[in-house]
Design a protein around this nucleic acid. Structure first.
Lengths: 205, 205
DNA sequence: TTTTCCCTAGGTGATAATGCCCATGGACAG
DNA sequence: CTGTCCATGGGCATTATCACCTAGGGAAAA
């Protein structure tokens, strides 16, 4: 059997230490580097935004798995979340999936199925975190834009030329050029394509 | 009470005619234009891709709601699907949400809750179908591109200038310009921004 | 073999974008 | 009242992009 070593760690959050350990054993055997947390609060305190995958128990003392997932969304962390529960119901599962969980698994589950799921998730981790980085950059830049600059940014990303923009806003091409230049600088965009992508990440939740 | 008339129709697919009618009554009272279908097959035959919202029963004779949802995904229809079921289980709900259902509702449900959900869905319909149109345009254009043109298209959308592209591919700037021009023409993109957005819709499932 | 498609590349000119200088007037905080 | 930010706009030079023309070589299909 070939054991691959995956660089990105898997974080297990569950207040049942036995379950954490048995899950850790499974993941170790799959070649994953993993670390356990006994509560959602402990994880939130330790997590710094690095690329990883999260295995999350729904029912826990203190903050529940769903609440933790919501917290991560609010902090704009796009790390993939797999929820695990002993006694889940439909509304709970729907809520989790609405909040962009990768999967919602009921115990007991098939070990090989979880490993297969993790493999898929790990494969798309780079894309996910590239997207997260772009989104954070976009948020930071957008916050620095003035009102007029935001208007210009949106229309530039719509594909309008400076000329068309000037007509649309009723100002001179020169002024558009200046706004546009400031937009690119403040958003730290190296190209129009990157600006378009950044604004795209802001448009979608 | 103010009754709004929403232009986009709501399609109800359920093999229980009583339920279809009671649901239609509810939606009428909410100002929605709606139409019922007795089976998934009947709906698929009638649907032409127009903007709409879909209320879908999970259990039906013939094709199930989940199967219909899957069919719509395969045909690249991005119309919003709300699944309704009498006896749903967790895996079923998870599967539906993975396939981009807007919601998964168990009977009996609260009427006002469904109306509120529909209001949200209808509000974002224009965005959704703009995105679908862009995606279809992107697929059609992409199919016509040659191998080299696809390479160029990807790198252009990454933000590379013609000069950088020429160096990356080891060809002259002139040739890059020609490929790029053909890409824009075949993809029917009016601007670089639109090309970037189109390739973005292809990248995501 | 001839036709067709793809990739290659140069020339010329028009249009667009970018970066640098300059400046004016309003609004708002200190 | 003065400094700062914002929006406005002109000039000038460089680079980029794009649209039109030209054309050769290779590969695959008819």
């Amino acid at each position: 059997m070939i054991i691959e070593v995956n660089q990105a760690p898997v974080y297990i959050v569950d207040d049942d230490s036995d379950f954490r350990e048995s899950l850790a054993w499974l993941l170790d055997s799959g070649g994953y580097q993993c670390r356990g947390f006994a509560s959602a609060e402990a994880f939130l305190e330790a997590y710094q935004g690095e690329a990883a995958c999260l295995l999350l128990d729904v029912r826990m003392g203190g903050m529940s798995g769903l609440e933790l997932q919501h917290q991560l969304l609010e902090r704009d962390y796009l790390l993939p979340v797999i929820l695990i529960t002993g006694h889940g119901d439909v509304p709970m599962a729907v809520e989790a999936m609405k909040n962009h969980a990768v999967d919602f698994i009921s115990k007991p589950f098939d070990d090989s199925q979880l490993l297969a799921l993790l493999q898929r998730v790990m494969a798309e981790l780079p894309q996910r975190f590239k997207r997260q980085a772009l989104r954070h950059q976009a948020r930071a830049g957008w916050a620095e834009l003035s009102g007029r600059e935001r208007e210009v940014a949106v229309l530039v990303a719509e594909g309008l030329s400076n000329k068309a923009l000037a007509e649309a806003l009723g100002i001179s091409i020169k002024t558009v050029e200046i706004h546009r230049s400031r937009v690119m600088k403040k958003m730290a965009a190296q190209s129009l394509a990157q600006l378009v992508k950044m604004l795209g990440t802001l448009a979608q939740p």
